[in-house]
């Protein structure tokens, strides 16, 4: 148990070092598993269930990429990361991609040397307060005690919001969502702030969700998306277009229910290209022709993933809002598959 672990690992390390510099795609294929960074647990986005199976909206993206690359949606190793560890985990190659509701910001994209491949959820920071407090607007929060999860853009937005409105507040920084919830419910803070989606997810887990309201103000833009290391553009393309495939599939009406039928060939050339029955898109990004089909079949298209994990019929009950297709007035707009 003791030395042999180190030896085994050293051997593995030696092997891995031999393959250093090779593209992420080859690494993933050689490993047979995709290492995907997720949160340590946020219901609806990524959380292990009672059997230890990861489930959620971000998890769905990981599984789609695994299905596209390896043909198996289960071939994912989920690596729980905190706000502190997520970027180094990605930079050091411990994970191949990060799908952990991470906000796309200028400095992260440039200074920290990552590539955001797209946006899988358009979010914004909101505030939740107990109904009993009688607050109806975030502008009334002068002097409040605010619970924040550390390691996110949240604390910066919060500082900006209160400063620009000339209000005072006491921040209570908390490491995990579970503890923030406990503090908020016990009344140790008046307000809980995080991304609106996270608020909805947290509120859903409460015993009496009706006693709490999410205030109408959204104080920031939080485009959340998966990201990869800067520099490996081939791998970035794969993750980017897998995400786009999920979005395009919804627009084109490809669902996990009809995908078998559609992949026999349809009259719509774009569906055919997406599902690999026409053209050679797969070859262009170094994957099989059926990559798109596999990705969509893994958990359904974007809309299905949304409905299943965070949609209106789930306890989290998020409406599509900005995350509707552009045809429905939302912001989702997949570039053409051609």
């Amino acid at each position: 148990m003791k030395k042999s672990v180190i030896l085994g690992a050293l051997t593995v390390a030696g092997l891995a070092a031999g393959a250093a510099g090779a593209a992420t795609l080859d690494d993933v294929k050689a490993r047979g598993k995709l290492n995907c960074g997720v949160t340590t647990g946020l219901v609806g986005f990524a959380a292990p269930d009672a059997n230890g199976e990861w489930d959620g909206f971000d998890v769905g993206v990981c599984r789609a990429v695994a299905a596209a690359v390896l043909g198996d949606p289960a071939a994912v190793e989920f690596v729980p990361t905190t706000g502190k560890t997520r970027f180094t985990a990605l930079a050091s190659g411990e994970i191949d991609m990060l799908a952990r509701n991470t906000t796309w910001t200028f400095s992260r994209d440039t200074d920290l040397k990552f590539d955001f491949v797209g946006v899988n959820y358009y979010d914004g920071q909101g505030f939740m307060v107990p109904k009993a407090l009688g607050v109806s607007s975030a502008k009334e929060l002068d002097g409040a005690t605010v619970c924040i999860q550390t390691g996110t853009t949240t604390e910066l937005n919060l500082a900006d919001f209160f400063r620009s409105n000339n209000m005072e507040y006491t921040p209570v920084p908390i490491e995990t969502n579970a503890e923030a919830q406990q503090q908020y419910l016990a009344g140790a803070c008046d307000v809980y702030t995080t991304d609106a989606s996270g608020l909805a997810a947290t509120r859903a887990a409460f015993e009496a969700p009706g006693d709490h309201v999410v205030l109408p103000e959204i104080v920031s833009k939080e485009p959340l998306g998966p990201l990869v290391r800067h520099g490996d553009n081939d791998w970035g393309d794969i993750v980017r277009w897998t995400l786009n495939a999920l979005i395009a599939a919804e627009e084109l009406g490809v669902t996990s229910a009809n995908i078998e039928e559609l992949s026999a060939g349809t009259d719509n050339p774009e569906i055919n290209r997406l599902l690999g029955t026409e053209g050679n898109l797969g070859e262009m990004i170094g994957l099989d022709a059926g990559w798109g089909k596999a990705a969509i079949a893994a958990g359904g298209n974007y809309g299905e993933l949304f409905e299943k994990n965070i949609g209106e019929n789930t306890p989290i009950a998020l409406s599509r809002g900005l995350n509707a297709q552009w045809t429905d007035g939302g912001l989702l707009y997949a570039p053409p598959f051609r």
């Binding site: 706000g83 502190k84 550390t150 390691g151 604390e155 209570v172 920084p173 908390i174 490491e175």
Partner: peptide
């Protein structure tokens, strides 16, 4: 969530 040096320098500053 007490903001000692691990919380400021080793926490939020590091994250940001």
């Amino acid at each position: 969530g007490y903001m000692d040096i691990t919380g400021t320098l080793g926490g939020i500053t590091l994250n940001q």
